[in-house]
């Protein structure tokens, strides 16, 4: 996949992907990065991921707690809030509808 294009797409939807992962359970930054990669979205740089997490925190979609690491620095855990779940449900539905429209257009173009 063209990396520039992938990054462009991700910019619009990475927050929803992160919320979707957090909807399954609490997690921390690096684990989220690994899970995003595992889900097939490709490698997500820390420089991209953490600002998204900060933004989600600012808007009240996620909350955080610090946990002292064993022999390492404290780790910040992220957890989705009720507001985050509501946002995910709303914007996730919008994204699915949007994606379906794009798919339909591309599919129609394909057949011509």
């Amino acid at each position: 996949m063209d990396l520039d294009r992938r990054n462009q797409w991700l910019r619009g939807v990475l927050d929803l992907c992160v919320l979707a992962l957090l909807a399954r359970g609490e997690s921390y930054g690096y684990e989220l990065a690994l899970e995003l990669e595992r889900s097939g979205l490709g490698a997500i740089r820390g420089g991209t991921l953490y600002p998204v997490l900060l933004r989600l925190q600012r808007t009240g979609s996620v909350e955080t707690r610090w946990q002292e690491g064993e022999g390492g620095p404290a780790r910040k855990y992220y957890r989705i809030t009720d507001a985050g779940r509501a946002g995910l449900a709303r914007d996730g539905t919008d994204w699915l509808a949007f994606g379906a429209m794009v798919a339909k257009l591309l599919d129609e173009g394909d057949r011509r």
Binding site: G46, G69, G72, A74
Partner: peptide, 12 residues
Amino acid sequence: VIVDVRTHLRDS
């Protein structure tokens, strides 16, 4: 912010 980055770099 720095703790976040440091932890991430250590993990990855």
